[in-house]
Design a protein around this nucleic acid. Structure first.
Length: 736
DNA sequence: AGCACGCCGACT
DNA sequence: GTCGGCGTGCTC
């Protein structure tokens, strides 16, 4: 009896076998519907077998093959296999990440059938949401069906097979921003691949040549270019050439916010080519449409966040990872993969060049260059010849008269920019008004009831908010401990800075950018637009501002509160701060106007600030390398982190103690050179009412820890669960 | 992840 | 005496 081995989106590392009914054509990669327990599930055929080890009477049949999407290609199945085994994740969950959204309701037979009804109507051009769907009981299901129907409508729209009244409906969707405007036909939109629209300097041209020369083989490049040196032009020129010779290009960016401006530059530089985006904020219908365009080879360029690394790309010719050092490439929940690292594996698998670009490369990438595994491409100068490196000023806080934490130097510099009609950016990595509320009389501080953290004062909403669990409460009028009325907001956040600047410069137009101010969709773009068109004088914000945005009239960057990272328990904190400072410094004076950077710090002699002052990132990384080597930390070692959480502290502690002991036993017994450390409480020991703890496993060799991890994970799985939720994270970015 | 099975407190 | 709480474990 022919059997299909199927990966299902459940948190079990094994696959499930199903028998194949006569006449059902099936091959590996096919997306199928099967029964699992009591409900229907979508799954992907991993392999075909003549027989199963599972008793025949326990096997169910494969219910159907899903026709809407082509099966996963062989290379995507291999990719899934690699990600599952490297990151110790269940194959079914990895496969679920790779598949496009098939409608959230796909797990239930009833909504699935309903969706098929909606889709079956397409070829006739008579598309309506079935009345039954409109009255679907659950709002979520309705939304799912709605987006599925949208997808169907849109594909018909693109094939110009819609009756007039439905065309109007799609136009309304486009106008309302619910769907992306239909893409131009490739033929109808001008000459393709106009590389010569990009004016490259010689360093850029050399980089492009090196990348293009490497076509057709695995060749990792580290494109190291100071901010403003024109990395994007290199990406675009290389991409244009790869596309011109019939390839597809994958471009990864760290943040959704960065996709629109990138898209625009692509459209200008490579006209007449189809670019599709893939990121989590797209509706299910659009994401599926774009995935299908990539799979069919109709999209020439796929631009997206880390999840786009799983896009199907039959003609893949080049992968680009912009801002490769950015920690957002690491997924922190679910399947915990690193987008950049998966991209490199994929480039190797498909034998294509991969370009990692950054002004502040990750130590891992620098080490690969050092060891000759990556080729370094350098863009040492700013692309606009007249744009000079900004002047750096390090001004102390301590022993100074500051106003709301802003030094006289910074105030004066902002004032000068206002007088000249130039723009300033003040950066502080804390949102809210003040990071804590303090009673001057008894020393009480507002703490989160569910986390071991302080509550943050948000003055605009008159709330105290926990930034870890979102708990919020009204700001108390008096101290709950002693009744004292004198409660002091302590420390500074973006809101407080904004207020202080508004007081000092009442006529200045000030905009604040942080997670609170940009919650609404599109608001970030709106502010960026305002800044570009000169309607903003002072920008206040968090690290959101540091990344990849180019403002021509911005000539001053002020940095507050940077020293905090220097005390952090997180071993990567100073590396991240360095990347951030070099990035924000790069925001100043990008075009014709000279820039200035003012960093308020009490440790001007710290190697990081010295390096910043000298505009020499590599000088700082030399110091970091020495530190990491001495401590045997990445990139000189490989780590895995077992995290656990539970209601009760003792449950966490005893679970982790047992897990740690098991790990040591395995390492000893099989003479793996792996060190398993004793459990420690997480730096945020309690979060959202759950006690947290962790164990670090450490090895000098990647393959050693890789061989150790599956055995450890299996052993830990046998531990009595006792209400402990745990996860194993490979290559963790942070722990403490 | 769901969803059922299973063993302990407030209702007809 | 049941209804139902969610804690635990299985799904080919």
């Amino acid at each position: 009896m022919a059997v299909a081995r199927i990966a299902l989106p459940v948190a079990v590392s094994s696959t499930f076998d199903y028998w194949i009914p006569d006449g059902l054509a099936l091959s590996p990669g096919a997306v199928v519907r099967v029964r699992l327990g009591t409900r229907a599930q979508l799954g992907v055929v991993i392999e075909m077998l003549a027989t199963s080890e599972v008793a025949r009477e326990r096997l169910h049949p494969v219910a159907a093959v899903i026709p809407e999407i082509p099966g996963l290609s062989r290379d995507l199945l291999e990719l899934a296999d690699f990600v599952a085994s490297y990151y110790q994740e269940p194959i079914g969950l990895v496969v679920a990440q790779i598949l496009p959204p098939l409608g959230a309701g796909s797990s239930s037979l009833r909504t699935r059938d309903a969706m098929e009804v909606a889709l079956r109507l397409t070829p006739k051009g008579r598309i309506e949401l079935p009345a039954a769907l409109r009255r679907a009981p659950r709002a979520r299901a309705l939304f799912t069906e709605w987006s599925a129907a949208q997808g169907a409508l849109l594909s018909a729209w693109q094939q110009a097979r819609l009756p007039v009244h439905l065309k109007h409906r799609v136009r309304r969707w486009e106008a309302a921003g619910w769907v992306e405007p239909a893409m131009p036909d490739r033929e109808s939109s001008g000459p393709a691949g106009c590389v010569d629209r990009l004016h490259l300097n010689s360093a850029q041209q050399q980089s492009v040549d090196a990348i293009v020369e490497a076509r057709g083989r695995f060749a990792p490049f580290l494109l190291e270019g100071v901010t403003g040196s024109g990395k994007t032009e290199v990406y675009l020129a290389a991409a244009a050439q790869c596309i011109a010779s019939g390839g597809q290009v994958l471009v990864l960016v760290p943040e959704i916010n960065l996709t629109p401006q990138f898209e625009q530059r692509i459209a200008t530089a490579i006209p007449g080519r189809r670019t599709v985006t893939l990121h989590s904020r797209l509706s299910a219908g659009i994401r599926r449409r774009n995935w299908l365009l990539a799979a069919a080879g109709d999209a020439d360029l796929v631009l997206g966040t880390r999840l786009a690394v799983f896009a199907p790309l039959p003609r893949l010719a080049l992968i680009i990872v912009d801002e490769e050092h950015d920690p957002s490439y690491k997924q922190q929940d679910g399947v915990r993969y690193h987008g950049r690292d998966v991209a490199i594996w994929r480039a190797k698998q498909r034998a294509v060049p991969v370009v990692l670009g950054s002004a502040t490369p990750a130590l891992e990438s620098l080490m690969h260059v050092e060891r000759g595994r990556y080729r370094r491409l350098a863009l040492p100068f700013r692309a606009v010849a007249s744009a000079r490196q900004p002047a750096i000023a390090l001004v102390p806080n301590r022993g100074r008269v500051t106003t709301e934490g802003i030094s006289p130097e910074l105030f004066a510099a902002i004032g000068a920019r206002l007088a000249r009609g130039e723009q300033s950016l003040v950066f502080i990595n804390r949102r809210g008004f003040a990071p804590s509320l303090f009673c001057v009389s008894c020393g009480w501080r507002a703490g989160c009831p569910r986390c071991s953290a302080r509550l943050v004062v948000h003055r605009d909403t008159h709330l105290l908010r926990c930034h870890h669990c979102n708990h919020s409460e009204r700001i108390p009028r008096a101290c709950p401990e002693c009744g004292n009325l004198d409660l002091l907001p302590q420390g500074h956040g973006t809101q407080r800075l904004e207020a202080a600047l508004a007081t000092r410069f009442p006529n200045a137009r000030i905009a604040r950018i942080d997670r609170d101010s940009t919650k609404r969709k599109g608001s970030f773009d709106a502010v960026r637009e305002e800044v570009t068109s000169g309607n903003i004088d002072i920008l206040v914000g968090t690290q959101m501002l540091a990344k990849g945005h180019d403002f021509a009239r911005l000539t001053l960057v002020g940095v507050l509160g940077a020293d905090n990272a220097l005390y952090s328990a997180d071993f990567r904190a100073t590396e991240r701060l360095a990347a951030l400072l070099f990035q924000v410094a790069g925001r100043a004076g990008r075009a014709q106007l000279p820039g200035e950077v003012i960093v308020q710090t009490d440790f001007p002699a710290h190697p990081l600030y010295r390096a910043l002052d000298a505009h020499d990132y590599r000088r700082f990384t030399e110091a970091l390398f020495a530190e990491r080597r001495a401590a045997s930390m990445p990139p000189f070692a490989h780590l895995a982190l077992l995290t656990a959480q539970a209601q009760r502290r003792d449950a966490v502690d005893s679970f982790l103690a047992a897990a740690s002991e098991l790990g040591r036993g395995i390492a000893r017994g099989s003479s793996f050179a792996v060190e398993v450390f004793p459990p420690v409480a997480a730096s945020l020991a309690r979060r959202a009412g759950l006690e947290r703890g962790q164990i670090l496993a450490h090895a000098l060799e990647r393959n050693v820890i890789q061989r150790f991890l599956p055995r450890w994970r299996e052993a830990v799985m046998t531990l009595p669960g006792r209400r402990v939720r745990w996860a194993l994270e490979v290559d963790p970015l942070a722990f403490a």
